[in-house]
């Protein structure tokens, strides 16, 4: 009998096989080898930079020469408590809170519809409709609102046609939120922030709602709850972790943004802009670093609270 040349796997001892055997025997080795490059990049380059930033926040600037004094001090952090600086922080936190709230209100109906009613093609369309704006260009979106909110722009034109100009004027004449026009008011700024972060709010709420089994809603109805009662007592509480998860994004993104406030809103600075100005034209890296630590601390507390609300299960 002529036999077909067929090496049993054992007979082949190529280098790759021997290497594979080693990797198979020590599976930890493979995981380690795979992790080393990403960890070098993120752990050394990125975390290293973050630590460098943190260290700089403990330096101070010499007020006369303007040079950085590389000695440990808490002086820079104390500067954060100056009224002007504290005002920046509190104002930014207020806007972030308002933006988070507005996004949640706008996001809920979309998420609710997508999770509970949309099926098949509609569902896919909804998904694309929510995700596309998430990924499309940030600057273009900001620019779009600059066009819309301009004095001679589409919103003013639409309000005029609908006879709603007095209403817009009334809104703009409100203290604090108002301003000469929408594009230079806090109102307009918050609106655009809410627009920018809306998809970040919709997706976690939708995910949380989708995890509510339909049988739960039916059980509530079966037990005698009217639709409104079911919504308040079953659906809404179960959607809350999703809102909390979404708010992590809306809050964090608002705290750190410094592009939008340059283009839309009043001329007073928000936290992000302050950092940018301090490290750039002012050259006060230590104070910029201290300011940058504020969102990290705020988000640390925020994440801790959100975790207790179950937000991390909603991604």
């Amino acid at each position: 009998m002529t036999s077909v040349a067929l090496d049993p796997p054992m007979a082949r001892e190529a280098l790759s096989r021997r290497l594979s055997s080693v990797l198979f025997a020590k599976r930890g080795l493979l995981v380690t080898l795979l992790l080393v490059p990403p960890l070098l990049w993120l752990g050394v380059v990125y975390v290293g930079s973050l630590i460098a930033l943190l260290i700089q926040s403990f330096f101070s600037i010499d007020e006369f020469s303007g040079t950085i004094v590389r000695e440990f001090t808490l002086k820079t952090y104390a500067e954060l408590l100056r009224p002007a600086n504290l005002d920046v922080i509190l104002r930014t936190l207020a806007i972030a809170t308002f933006v988070t709230f507005a996004s949640a209100v706008l996001a809920f109906p979309i998420a609710y519809y997508a999770a509970r009613y949309a099926r098949g093609r509609t569902k896919a369309t909804f998904y694309i409709a929510i995700v596309m704006p998430l990924w499309s260009s940030y600057l273009v979106k900001v620019y779009a609102w600059k066009l819309l909110l301009a004095k001679e722009g589409a919103v003013a034109w639409g309000a005029d046609r609908l006879g709603a100009t007095p209403m817009v004027d009334a809104l703009l004449s409100m203290p604090f939120v108002g301003g000469p026009s929408l594009s230079v008011s806090y109102l307009g700024q918050a609106l655009v922030f809410a627009y920018l972060w809306l998809p970040f709010m919709i997706l976690p709420i939708q995910a949380a709602l989708e995890r509510v089994p339909a049988s739960l809603i039916e059980a509530s109805a079966d037990l005698g709850a009217a639709p409104g009662q079911t919504f308040r007592t079953v659906t809404l509480p179960l959607a809350l972790p999703g809102v909390a998860a979404g708010s992590i994004f809306t809050f964090s993104l608002t705290l750190g943004d410094y592009i939008l406030p340059q283009i839309i809103g009043p001329s007073t600075l928000l936290l992000g802009q302050t950092v940018y100005v301090l490290q750039g034209t002012a050259g006060n890296i230590p104070l910029a670093a201290a300011f940058a630590v504020v969102p990290i601390i705020v988000m640390g507390f925020y994440l801790f609270a959100a975790k207790r609300l179950g937000a991390f299960d909603a991604f």
């Binding site: 796997p9 054992m10 096989r17």
Partner: peptide, 9 residues
């Protein structure tokens, strides 16, 4: 002992 699955018949 020690031989990986790809070397077993």
């Amino acid at each position: 002992a020690g031989s990986p699955p790809f070397q077993r018949a």
